[in-house]
Design a protein around this nucleic acid. Structure first.
Length: 424
RNA sequence: GUGGCUGUAGCUCAGCUGGCAGAGCCCCUGGUUGUGGUCCAGGUGGUCGUGGGUUCGAAUCCCAUCAGCCACCCCA
Protein backbone atom coordinates (compact mmCIF):
# COMPACT_ATOMS: atom_id res chain seq x y z
CA UNK A 1 0.00 0.00 0.00
CA UNK A 2 1.12 3.51 -0.71
CA UNK A 3 1.33 5.04 2.72
CA UNK A 4 0.99 8.74 3.17
CA UNK A 5 2.94 8.76 6.39
CA UNK A 6 5.66 6.41 7.51
CA UNK A 7 7.59 6.21 10.71
CA UNK A 8 10.95 7.91 10.78
CA UNK A 9 14.02 5.88 9.94
CA UNK A 10 15.35 4.05 12.94
CA UNK A 11 12.14 4.28 14.95
CA UNK A 12 9.69 1.52 15.77
CA UNK A 13 6.09 0.99 16.76
CA UNK A 14 5.59 -1.35 19.67
CA UNK A 15 2.11 -2.81 19.77
CA UNK A 16 -0.06 -5.81 20.50
CA UNK A 17 1.93 -8.84 21.61
CA UNK A 18 5.20 -6.99 21.57
CA UNK A 19 3.82 -4.27 23.81
CA UNK A 20 2.74 -6.98 26.20
CA UNK A 21 6.24 -8.40 26.22
CA UNK A 22 7.63 -4.95 27.05
CA UNK A 23 5.14 -4.52 29.87
CA UNK A 24 6.04 -7.97 31.20
CA UNK A 25 9.74 -7.03 31.35
CA UNK A 26 9.07 -3.61 32.82
CA UNK A 27 7.02 -5.08 35.66
CA UNK A 28 9.76 -7.50 36.58
CA UNK A 29 12.46 -4.88 36.35
CA UNK A 30 10.56 -2.46 38.56
CA UNK A 31 10.25 -5.21 41.14
CA UNK A 32 13.98 -6.03 41.09
CA UNK A 33 14.96 -2.37 41.26
CA UNK A 34 12.76 -1.82 44.29
CA UNK A 35 14.45 -4.76 45.99
CA UNK A 36 17.84 -3.16 45.41
CA UNK A 37 16.65 0.14 46.83
CA UNK A 38 16.18 2.18 43.67
CA UNK A 39 13.51 4.84 43.19
CA UNK A 40 12.36 6.00 39.78
CA UNK A 41 13.55 9.18 38.12
CA UNK A 42 11.94 10.76 35.05
CA UNK A 43 13.62 13.64 33.33
CA UNK A 44 12.86 15.58 30.14
CA UNK A 45 14.01 13.94 26.92
CA UNK A 46 15.35 17.31 25.85
CA UNK A 47 18.27 19.10 27.49
CA UNK A 48 20.70 21.92 26.77
CA UNK A 49 23.25 20.65 24.27
CA UNK A 50 26.13 21.72 26.45
CA UNK A 51 25.15 19.22 29.16
CA UNK A 52 26.13 16.35 26.87
CA UNK A 53 29.09 18.13 25.34
CA UNK A 54 30.68 18.53 28.72
CA UNK A 55 29.74 15.22 30.29
CA UNK A 56 29.83 12.65 27.51
CA UNK A 57 32.73 14.54 26.02
CA UNK A 58 33.89 15.85 22.67
CA UNK A 59 35.85 13.27 20.78
CA UNK A 60 33.26 10.60 21.49
CA UNK A 61 31.12 9.29 18.65
CA UNK A 62 27.98 10.20 20.53
CA UNK A 63 28.81 13.89 20.71
CA UNK A 64 30.68 14.16 17.44
CA UNK A 65 28.14 12.60 15.13
CA UNK A 66 25.13 11.02 16.82
CA UNK A 67 23.24 13.74 18.67
CA UNK A 68 19.86 15.12 17.64
CA UNK A 69 20.66 18.78 18.13
CA UNK A 70 18.67 21.79 16.99
CA UNK A 71 18.28 25.49 17.58
CA UNK A 72 15.26 27.16 19.13
CA UNK A 73 13.90 30.36 17.66
CA UNK A 74 15.65 32.13 20.52
CA UNK A 75 18.97 30.68 19.39
CA UNK A 76 19.39 28.18 22.20
CA UNK A 77 20.90 24.83 21.27
CA UNK A 78 18.91 21.82 22.49
CA UNK A 79 19.57 18.10 22.25
CA UNK A 80 17.47 14.95 22.55
CA UNK A 81 19.24 12.94 25.22
CA UNK A 82 21.60 10.29 23.83
CA UNK A 83 22.02 8.75 27.28
CA UNK A 84 20.67 9.28 30.77
CA UNK A 85 23.55 9.75 33.18
CA UNK A 86 24.13 13.41 32.45
CA UNK A 87 20.44 14.17 32.90
CA UNK A 88 20.31 12.36 36.22
CA UNK A 89 23.32 14.28 37.51
CA UNK A 90 21.76 17.52 36.31
CA UNK A 91 18.49 16.68 38.07
CA UNK A 92 20.35 15.61 41.20
CA UNK A 93 21.98 19.03 41.43
CA UNK A 94 18.99 21.05 40.28
CA UNK A 95 16.71 19.47 42.88
CA UNK A 96 19.11 20.20 45.72
CA UNK A 97 19.85 16.61 46.66
CA UNK A 98 23.54 17.05 47.39
CA UNK A 99 22.98 17.17 51.13
CA UNK A 100 20.92 14.01 51.28
CA UNK A 101 22.56 11.49 53.58
CA UNK A 102 23.81 8.17 52.23
CA UNK A 103 23.62 6.99 48.64
CA UNK A 104 20.85 8.19 46.35
CA UNK A 105 19.75 5.46 44.00
CA UNK A 106 17.75 6.25 40.89
CA UNK A 107 16.49 4.00 38.15
CA UNK A 108 14.92 4.82 34.81
CA UNK A 109 13.31 3.05 31.89
CA UNK A 110 13.24 5.59 29.13
CA UNK A 111 13.84 6.41 25.46
CA UNK A 112 17.21 7.70 24.21
CA UNK A 113 18.08 9.18 20.81
CA UNK A 114 21.15 8.72 18.67
CA UNK A 115 21.40 9.58 14.99
CA UNK A 116 23.13 6.38 13.93
CA UNK A 117 22.60 4.14 10.94
CA UNK A 118 19.93 1.67 12.06
CA UNK A 119 20.54 -2.05 12.08
CA UNK A 120 19.54 -5.12 14.07
CA UNK A 121 19.28 -4.14 17.72
CA UNK A 122 20.16 -0.55 16.99
CA UNK A 123 17.65 2.24 16.58
CA UNK A 124 17.64 6.00 16.53
CA UNK A 125 15.08 6.01 19.28
CA UNK A 126 15.94 3.19 21.62
CA UNK A 127 15.22 2.40 25.24
CA UNK A 128 17.34 1.77 28.25
CA UNK A 129 16.69 0.54 31.75
CA UNK A 130 19.44 1.78 34.00
CA UNK A 131 20.47 3.00 37.40
CA UNK A 132 22.62 5.74 38.91
CA UNK A 133 23.83 5.38 42.51
CA UNK A 134 25.18 8.69 43.72
CA UNK A 135 27.20 9.41 46.84
CA UNK A 136 29.42 6.47 47.71
CA UNK A 137 33.01 5.80 46.62
CA UNK A 138 32.94 2.21 47.81
CA UNK A 139 33.89 -0.60 45.44
CA UNK A 140 31.26 -2.63 47.27
CA UNK A 141 28.67 -0.35 45.70
CA UNK A 142 30.23 -1.03 42.29
CA UNK A 143 29.72 -4.70 42.96
CA UNK A 144 26.13 -4.21 44.03
CA UNK A 145 25.41 -2.13 40.95
CA UNK A 146 26.84 -4.86 38.74
CA UNK A 147 24.86 -7.44 40.64
CA UNK A 148 21.73 -5.34 40.04
CA UNK A 149 22.35 -5.41 36.30
CA UNK A 150 22.76 -9.17 36.35
CA UNK A 151 19.57 -9.46 38.43
CA UNK A 152 17.66 -7.46 35.82
CA UNK A 153 18.73 -9.90 33.13
CA UNK A 154 17.90 -12.81 35.36
CA UNK A 155 14.42 -11.41 36.04
CA UNK A 156 13.50 -11.76 32.36
CA UNK A 157 15.25 -15.12 31.95
CA UNK A 158 18.12 -13.81 29.83
CA UNK A 159 20.83 -16.46 29.62
CA UNK A 160 24.24 -16.82 28.07
CA UNK A 161 25.65 -13.49 29.21
CA UNK A 162 29.21 -12.55 30.00
CA UNK A 163 30.46 -9.80 32.30
CA UNK A 164 33.61 -7.86 31.43
CA UNK A 165 35.22 -5.56 33.99
CA UNK A 166 38.14 -3.18 33.97
CA UNK A 167 39.59 -0.19 35.77
CA UNK A 168 40.67 2.86 33.82
CA UNK A 169 42.10 4.83 36.72
CA UNK A 170 41.31 8.19 38.22
CA UNK A 171 42.40 11.81 37.59
CA UNK A 172 45.61 11.20 39.53
CA UNK A 173 46.80 8.31 37.38
CA UNK A 174 44.81 8.20 34.13
CA UNK A 175 46.33 11.37 32.56
CA UNK A 176 49.88 10.08 32.87
CA UNK A 177 48.90 6.81 31.22
CA UNK A 178 47.05 8.61 28.45
CA UNK A 179 50.06 10.87 27.85
CA UNK A 180 52.43 7.91 27.63
CA UNK A 181 50.02 6.08 25.36
CA UNK A 182 49.85 9.09 23.07
CA UNK A 183 53.64 9.27 22.78
CA UNK A 184 53.80 5.56 22.02
CA UNK A 185 51.11 5.81 19.37
CA UNK A 186 52.68 8.88 17.77
CA UNK A 187 55.86 6.90 17.29
CA UNK A 188 53.99 4.08 15.54
CA UNK A 189 51.45 6.17 13.70
CA UNK A 190 52.16 4.65 10.30
CA UNK A 191 51.02 1.24 11.57
CA UNK A 192 47.58 2.58 12.38
CA UNK A 193 44.96 2.64 9.62
CA UNK A 194 44.03 6.11 8.58
CA UNK A 195 40.48 5.94 9.85
CA UNK A 196 41.69 5.69 13.42
CA UNK A 197 44.59 8.15 13.43
CA UNK A 198 42.49 11.10 14.42
CA UNK A 199 41.93 9.51 17.80
CA UNK A 200 45.59 9.62 18.74
CA UNK A 201 45.35 13.30 19.54
CA UNK A 202 41.64 13.60 20.27
CA UNK A 203 41.15 10.68 22.60
CA UNK A 204 43.87 8.02 22.55
CA UNK A 205 42.06 5.66 24.92
CA UNK A 206 39.40 5.24 22.29
CA UNK A 207 41.83 3.30 20.13
CA UNK A 208 41.07 0.43 22.48
CA UNK A 209 37.51 0.43 21.12
CA UNK A 210 38.75 -0.21 17.60
CA UNK A 211 38.11 -3.73 16.38
CA UNK A 212 40.89 -3.38 13.82
CA UNK A 213 43.46 -6.17 14.14
CA UNK A 214 46.46 -3.95 13.41
CA UNK A 215 45.41 -1.48 16.07
CA UNK A 216 44.80 -4.20 18.60
CA UNK A 217 48.16 -5.81 17.89
CA UNK A 218 49.90 -2.52 18.35
CA UNK A 219 48.14 -1.80 21.62
CA UNK A 220 49.13 -5.16 22.97
CA UNK A 221 52.73 -3.98 22.83
CA UNK A 222 51.90 -1.20 25.27
CA UNK A 223 51.35 -1.79 28.98
CA UNK A 224 47.70 -2.34 29.94
CA UNK A 225 46.01 0.44 31.84
CA UNK A 226 45.20 -1.85 34.70
CA UNK A 227 48.93 -2.15 35.51
CA UNK A 228 49.41 1.60 35.43
CA UNK A 229 46.78 2.85 37.83
CA UNK A 230 47.65 4.35 41.20
CA UNK A 231 47.63 2.29 44.43
CA UNK A 232 44.22 3.64 45.48
CA UNK A 233 42.66 2.61 42.16
CA UNK A 234 44.42 -0.74 42.31
CA UNK A 235 42.96 -1.35 45.77
CA UNK A 236 39.50 -0.25 44.63
CA UNK A 237 39.62 -2.67 41.74
CA UNK A 238 40.90 -5.53 43.89
CA UNK A 239 38.04 -5.10 46.37
CA UNK A 240 35.51 -4.99 43.54
CA UNK A 241 36.80 -8.22 42.04
CA UNK A 242 36.86 -9.92 45.43
CA UNK A 243 33.32 -8.77 46.19
CA UNK A 244 32.05 -10.05 42.86
CA UNK A 245 33.68 -13.36 43.68
CA UNK A 246 32.01 -13.38 47.10
CA UNK A 247 28.67 -12.72 45.40
CA UNK A 248 29.38 -15.56 42.97
CA UNK A 249 28.99 -13.21 40.01
CA UNK A 250 31.18 -14.65 37.24
CA UNK A 251 33.30 -12.08 35.44
CA UNK A 252 36.20 -11.70 33.08
CA UNK A 253 38.83 -9.00 33.32
CA UNK A 254 39.32 -7.04 30.11
CA UNK A 255 42.06 -4.40 30.21
CA UNK A 256 40.94 -3.01 26.84
CA UNK A 257 37.46 -2.10 28.07
CA UNK A 258 37.60 1.70 28.12
CA UNK A 259 34.09 2.50 26.89
CA UNK A 260 32.97 5.28 24.64
CA UNK A 261 32.14 7.96 27.17
CA UNK A 262 34.62 10.31 28.76
CA UNK A 263 33.27 10.59 32.27
CA UNK A 264 34.20 7.14 33.53
CA UNK A 265 36.79 6.67 36.23
CA UNK A 266 38.04 3.51 37.89
CA UNK A 267 35.46 0.80 37.25
CA UNK A 268 34.07 0.15 33.79
CA UNK A 269 32.02 -2.89 32.85
CA UNK A 270 30.01 -4.35 30.03
CA UNK A 271 27.57 -7.22 29.73
CA UNK A 272 27.58 -9.08 26.44
CA UNK A 273 25.63 -11.88 24.84
CA UNK A 274 28.15 -14.67 24.41
CA UNK A 275 26.50 -16.43 21.48
CA UNK A 276 25.74 -13.41 19.33
CA UNK A 277 28.41 -11.87 17.21
CA UNK A 278 26.52 -8.75 16.32
CA UNK A 279 25.26 -6.08 18.67
CA UNK A 280 26.33 -8.38 21.46
CA UNK A 281 26.77 -5.53 23.91
CA UNK A 282 23.58 -5.54 25.97
CA UNK A 283 24.64 -3.26 28.81
CA UNK A 284 27.44 -0.98 29.88
CA UNK A 285 28.35 1.08 32.88
CA UNK A 286 30.93 2.21 35.31
CA UNK A 287 31.98 4.67 37.96
CA UNK A 288 31.99 8.39 37.27
CA UNK A 289 33.41 10.05 40.35
CA UNK A 290 34.22 13.36 38.69
CA UNK A 291 31.03 14.07 36.81
CA UNK A 292 28.94 15.69 39.54
CA UNK A 293 31.71 18.13 40.35
CA UNK A 294 32.29 18.79 36.68
CA UNK A 295 28.62 19.69 36.35
CA UNK A 296 29.00 22.31 39.06
CA UNK A 297 28.24 20.30 42.19
CA UNK A 298 30.39 19.25 45.13
CA UNK A 299 32.85 16.37 44.63
CA UNK A 300 30.53 13.36 44.63
CA UNK A 301 31.34 9.79 43.68
CA UNK A 302 28.79 7.82 41.65
CA UNK A 303 28.33 4.65 39.65
CA UNK A 304 25.72 3.36 37.23
CA UNK A 305 24.85 1.37 34.14
CA UNK A 306 22.31 1.11 31.39
CA UNK A 307 20.82 -1.89 29.64
CA UNK A 308 19.57 -1.75 26.06
CA UNK A 309 15.96 -2.91 26.15
CA UNK A 310 15.62 -3.65 22.42
CA UNK A 311 18.82 -5.67 22.46
CA UNK A 312 17.77 -7.56 25.53
CA UNK A 313 14.45 -8.48 23.94
CA UNK A 314 16.28 -9.45 20.77
CA UNK A 315 18.51 -11.70 22.83
CA UNK A 316 15.44 -13.27 24.42
CA UNK A 317 14.31 -14.44 20.99
CA UNK A 318 11.80 -11.73 20.35
CA UNK A 319 10.02 -13.07 17.27
CA UNK A 320 8.37 -10.71 14.83
CA UNK A 321 4.71 -10.17 15.57
CA UNK A 322 1.95 -11.33 13.26
CA UNK A 323 -0.65 -8.58 13.68
CA UNK A 324 -3.51 -10.82 12.53
CA UNK A 325 -2.86 -13.46 15.12
CA UNK A 326 -2.24 -11.07 17.96
CA UNK A 327 -5.35 -9.02 17.35
CA UNK A 328 -7.43 -10.60 20.04
CA UNK A 329 -7.05 -9.92 23.67
CA UNK A 330 -8.90 -12.24 25.94
CA UNK A 331 -12.37 -11.29 27.13
CA UNK A 332 -14.93 -13.00 29.36
CA UNK A 333 -18.17 -11.88 27.76
CA UNK A 334 -18.84 -10.91 24.14
CA UNK A 335 -21.98 -8.97 23.26
CA UNK A 336 -23.29 -9.46 19.73
CA UNK A 337 -25.70 -6.78 18.57
CA UNK A 338 -28.10 -7.15 15.64
CA UNK A 339 -29.11 -3.67 14.62
CA UNK A 340 -28.44 -0.12 15.74
CA UNK A 341 -30.94 -0.16 18.55
CA UNK A 342 -29.51 -3.44 19.77
CA UNK A 343 -26.09 -1.82 20.09
CA UNK A 344 -27.47 0.79 22.45
CA UNK A 345 -29.28 -1.85 24.45
CA UNK A 346 -26.17 -4.02 24.45
CA UNK A 347 -23.92 -1.28 25.75
CA UNK A 348 -26.23 -0.65 28.68
CA UNK A 349 -26.16 -4.37 29.43
CA UNK A 350 -22.36 -4.51 29.07
CA UNK A 351 -22.08 -1.68 31.54
CA UNK A 352 -23.79 -3.84 34.17
CA UNK A 353 -21.00 -6.42 33.83
CA UNK A 354 -17.87 -4.32 33.54
CA UNK A 355 -17.38 -4.03 37.29
CA UNK A 356 -17.18 -7.79 37.43
CA UNK A 357 -15.54 -9.09 34.29
CA UNK A 358 -14.06 -8.23 30.88
CA UNK A 359 -16.71 -7.39 28.30
CA UNK A 360 -16.46 -6.60 24.61
CA UNK A 361 -19.40 -5.20 22.70
CA UNK A 362 -19.51 -5.67 18.95
CA UNK A 363 -20.65 -2.54 17.15
CA UNK A 364 -19.45 -3.62 13.73
CA UNK A 365 -22.92 -4.28 12.32
CA UNK A 366 -21.76 -7.61 10.85
CA UNK A 367 -23.77 -10.77 10.64
CA UNK A 368 -24.63 -12.73 13.77
CA UNK A 369 -22.33 -15.44 12.49
CA UNK A 370 -19.39 -13.10 12.15
CA UNK A 371 -19.93 -11.67 15.60
CA UNK A 372 -20.14 -15.13 17.17
CA UNK A 373 -16.92 -16.02 15.39
CA UNK A 374 -15.20 -13.02 16.92
CA UNK A 375 -16.48 -14.04 20.35
CA UNK A 376 -14.81 -17.36 19.86
CA UNK A 377 -11.55 -15.81 18.67
CA UNK A 378 -11.46 -13.60 21.73
CA UNK A 379 -11.75 -16.71 23.85
CA UNK A 380 -14.96 -15.42 25.40
CA UNK A 381 -16.76 -17.85 27.68
CA UNK A 382 -20.15 -16.21 27.25
CA UNK A 383 -21.83 -14.82 24.15
CA UNK A 384 -24.69 -12.43 24.76
CA UNK A 385 -26.88 -11.74 21.75
CA UNK A 386 -29.28 -8.82 21.40
CA UNK A 387 -31.84 -8.41 18.62
CA UNK A 388 -35.30 -6.96 18.24
CA UNK A 389 -36.97 -9.81 20.13
CA UNK A 390 -34.64 -9.40 23.11
CA UNK A 391 -35.14 -5.67 23.26
CA UNK A 392 -38.90 -6.18 23.26
CA UNK A 393 -38.60 -8.65 26.13
CA UNK A 394 -35.94 -6.60 27.97
CA UNK A 395 -33.66 -9.64 27.89
CA UNK A 396 -30.56 -11.10 26.23
CA UNK A 397 -29.67 -14.50 24.84
CA UNK A 398 -26.92 -15.98 27.00
CA UNK A 399 -24.86 -18.68 25.34
CA UNK A 400 -22.16 -20.65 27.13
CA UNK A 401 -19.65 -21.12 24.35
CA UNK A 402 -17.93 -24.12 25.82
CA UNK A 403 -21.10 -26.22 25.89
CA UNK A 404 -23.23 -24.46 23.32
CA UNK A 405 -26.12 -24.12 25.76
CA UNK A 406 -28.20 -20.99 25.27
CA UNK A 407 -31.11 -19.45 27.14
CA UNK A 408 -32.77 -16.05 27.45
CA UNK A 409 -31.95 -14.01 30.54
CA UNK A 410 -33.86 -10.96 31.75
CA UNK A 411 -31.69 -7.88 31.74
CA UNK A 412 -32.21 -7.41 35.46
CA UNK A 413 -30.95 -10.95 36.13
CA UNK A 414 -27.95 -10.62 33.77
CA UNK A 415 -25.20 -9.94 36.30
CA UNK A 416 -26.25 -12.83 38.53
CA UNK A 417 -26.48 -15.18 35.56
CA UNK A 418 -23.06 -14.20 34.19
CA UNK A 419 -21.51 -14.52 37.63
CA UNK A 420 -22.94 -17.97 38.02
CA UNK A 421 -21.46 -19.14 34.71
CA UNK A 422 -18.03 -17.57 35.14
CA UNK A 423 -17.58 -18.60 38.74
CA UNK A 424 -19.06 -22.05 38.34
C1' G B 1 29.64 8.41 6.15
C1' U B 2 30.88 3.19 3.26
C1' G B 3 29.17 -1.54 1.41
C1' G B 4 25.58 -5.91 0.50
C1' C B 5 20.56 -7.84 0.03
C1' U B 6 15.32 -7.07 -0.68
C1' G B 7 10.71 -4.21 -2.45
C1' U B 8 4.22 -8.16 -5.99
C1' A B 9 -3.05 -8.17 -1.97
C1' G B 10 -3.85 -6.41 5.20
C1' C B 11 0.11 -10.74 6.32
C1' U B 12 3.63 -14.71 4.31
C1' C B 13 5.20 -15.35 -0.40
C1' A B 14 5.08 -17.73 -5.83
C1' G B 15 5.39 -15.65 -10.59
C1' C B 16 11.26 -19.70 -15.10
C1' U B 17 14.78 -17.75 -21.03
C1' G B 18 9.72 -10.84 -21.34
C1' G B 19 3.14 -12.84 -23.40
C1' C B 20 -4.16 -11.85 -19.61
C1' A B 21 -1.11 -10.45 -11.86
C1' G B 22 -1.52 -15.56 -8.59
C1' A B 23 -1.62 -18.93 -3.96
C1' G B 24 -2.15 -19.65 1.24
C1' C B 25 -3.67 -17.05 5.54
C1' C B 26 -6.87 -13.01 7.11
C1' C B 27 -11.39 -10.36 6.11
C1' C B 28 -16.70 -10.12 4.16
C1' U B 29 -21.28 -12.67 2.38
C1' G B 30 -24.08 -17.08 1.86
C1' G B 31 -25.11 -22.42 2.86
C1' U B 32 -27.86 -22.01 8.75
C1' U B 33 -34.78 -15.28 8.14
C1' G B 34 -30.31 -14.12 14.26
C1' U B 35 -25.12 -17.80 16.64
C1' G B 36 -18.49 -19.87 17.27
C1' G B 37 -14.04 -23.41 17.01
C1' U B 38 -14.68 -28.06 11.37
C1' C B 39 -16.76 -27.94 6.37
C1' C B 40 -18.54 -26.04 1.48
C1' A B 41 -19.58 -22.04 -2.14
C1' G B 42 -18.85 -17.16 -3.55
C1' G B 43 -16.62 -12.32 -2.86
C1' U B 44 -13.65 -7.65 -1.45
C1' G B 45 -8.79 -6.23 -1.85
C1' G B 46 -2.91 -4.70 -6.32
C1' U B 47 -0.33 2.44 -9.74
C1' C B 48 3.91 -5.38 -9.09
C1' G B 49 8.11 0.84 -4.23
C1' U B 50 8.68 5.34 -7.70
C1' G B 51 10.50 7.59 -12.37
C1' G B 52 12.60 6.78 -16.95
C1' G B 53 14.62 3.42 -20.92
C1' U B 54 14.63 -1.08 -24.32
C1' U B 55 10.50 -3.76 -26.71
C1' C B 56 4.77 -5.06 -30.72
C1' G B 57 4.42 -6.20 -25.45
C1' A B 58 7.92 -5.31 -18.95
C1' A B 59 6.23 -7.61 -12.24
C1' U B 60 10.16 -9.94 -15.35
C1' C B 61 15.68 -6.87 -18.94
C1' C B 62 18.61 -1.88 -18.29
C1' C B 63 19.38 2.93 -15.70
C1' A B 64 18.14 6.15 -11.87
C1' U B 65 15.75 7.06 -7.39
C1' C B 66 13.25 6.08 -2.75
C1' A B 67 12.27 2.80 1.22
C1' G B 68 13.26 -1.41 4.30
C1' C B 69 16.64 -4.92 6.17
C1' C B 70 21.68 -6.41 7.13
C1' A B 71 26.81 -5.34 7.77
C1' C B 72 31.18 -1.81 8.57
C1' C B 73 32.47 2.38 11.97
C1' C B 74 30.76 2.81 16.96
C1' C B 75 27.54 1.73 20.55
C1' A B 76 22.66 0.15 24.04
Amino acid sequence: MNLKYRRLKGTRDILLEEAERWAWCEERWADVLARYGYGEIRTPVIEPTDLFFRSVGEGTDIVDKEMYTFQTKGGESLTLRPEMTASVVRAYLENGLTRQPGTLKFYYMAPMFRHDRPQAGRYRQFHQVGVEAIGSPSPVLDAEVIQTAMALFDAVDARGLGLLVNSIGCPSCKPAYVADLKIFLKGREEEIPEAFRGRIDANPLRLFDAKDDAVQALLREFRPITDSVCPACREHHAVLLQTLTDLKVPFEEDPTLVRGLDYYSRTTFEITALAERKQSSLAGGGRYDGLVEQCGGPPTPAVGFSIGIERTLLHLGDEPVDPQRSRQSVVDVYVACLGDEAQRFGLVAADLLRGFCRVEIDTSGRSAKAQAKSANQRLARILLTVGEAEIAADSLQLKILETGDQRPVARLDLLAAVKEVLEG
